[in-house]
Nucleic acid binder design. Sequence first.
DNA 1: CGCAGTTTTGAGACTGATCAATGCCTGTGG
DNA 2: CCACAGGCATTGATCAGTCTCAAAACTGCG
Lengths: 254, 254
Amino acid sequence: MKLSPPGTKPSNSQTPCEKCSLLKNSTFRKFTSKEMGFIQKFKTGELVADPGTTLLLDGTNSAHLYTILTGWIFRYKMLEDGRRQILNFGMPGDFIGLQTSIFNEMDHSVETLTEVVLCVFSREKVWTLFNKHPELAFDITWLAAREERLLDDNLLTVGRRTALERVAFIITSLFHRAEQLGMTNKNEVYFPFTQTHLADALGLSQVHTNKTIKKLVDKRLIEWKSSKFKIKDRDALIELAHYDHEDPTPRPFI
Amino acid sequence: MKLSPPGTKPSNSQTPCEKCSLLKNSTFRKFTSKEMGFIQKFKTGELVADPGTTLLLDGTNSAHLYTILTGWIFRYKMLEDGRRQILNFGMPGDFIGLQTSIFNEMDHSVETLTEVVLCVFSREKVWTLFNKHPELAFDITWLAAREERLLDDNLLTVGRRTALERVAFIITSLFHRAEQLGMTNKNEVYFPFTQTHLADALGLSQVHTNKTIKKLVDKRLIEWKSSKFKIKDRDALIELAHYDHEDPTPRPFI
DNA sequence: CGCAGTTTTGAGACTGATCAATGCCTGTGG
DNA sequence: CCACAGGCATTGATCAGTCTCAAAACTGCG
């Protein structure tokens, strides 16, 4: 029997896939019953992880792949001397660990920000998925291509936007993603990361990130009090960030 | 009959896939004859593009996908005011335009650096590929995951490395990629980009990029005279760049 | 109540940006 | 075969955005 990674434990509620909470969200596409049947077999269980748990570690491999059912995670890489770059944040519906199933080894790490509930899949069955369910294989490719898009955006941000634009951009895009998942309330969300996380995602220092956020607060574009984030002037943020928003077409998940 | 994009023309030599020059390179995986047969049908022709040609344009879609047979390209995004971020460079074997086939619209552009010979595929047949050739579908996902890895590296570079480390890193990794493709001669390659391209890939200004390259030359780690690039002290570069090189396992291409 | 982790603020240092020439190739036409 | 143009590369001087260091003020939690 497999041990769960430290900081995690198998969930005792093993929701059947037809009852999956993600299905209630209209941004996600629906499954045929044949697909559903396969995914149910593909799924090996559920896992609950505490905040701050390392789900996947750079340089190692994992027998499992995950879909986030609940909570926030982030992907990151580090330099030997401790400098950290956060590559992207992950939320419900996001797929984690494609790398292990393709290259056998991670080249980045994944850590939880909140308590996270994960749907666990067996890496071994990925091949069956490609073999027997081309639509699902296409979905996995879709998810990989989407991640690539998000990375392209992040790279443009870190490489070419000013500090103020960077903060405006990341804040707006994270809010936007959360909104599509129905995690917002009016113009408010719960942002579970620290300013240090933001700084590491933006290629800035924590101090300068703090001062930059303050500028946005002073301009009355946002409010942010202990994890409670509020967008006050979305249009101004979008313009400031040069945010190029996509229309939320229904998206797949596994 | 379809027009070719400006700056390109159909090649008159339509190499059959079994004769594909990429097959001669041992870094690429081999195909079964069944796969080869499908790819031959998937391929709709060859295209030759001049240097500086825009192959794919942000915001548009394309009926075609490409594999680079010969030459160099780069992917980039721009901000309205002209700031440009180069996301990655592409070389023989790299697959271009996955985005169009998945999202119907590019969110970045692709431009050639050299004269480029492309293998052209029809976007419409992608679905057939997933449906009938799971191994090839897996290969496409492999390629997408690899691009994601390269982006992860670039993001770490731009976000957290110093100017000197950045230049050392990009130079080393491009050399490494070219070397695996057999495009190097001893420790020399032909680098077809300008310092402005490098700067835009690294999130630096052209002037500072120039001064930084000079430091590497002064330290006798590299030589670089009119496109002819030579690595003089690879180990020192690897250490300076914190370059984490992967072992070149055989890779797929389409 | 007190700790530990965050956030906030200020001062000074420094990396990298900008501006502005100048120099250097390479290809072209006379 | 030389002169010239245009694109790049190189260099110096100055400027500014961001970093580092350091300390103080919060906040949530045991």
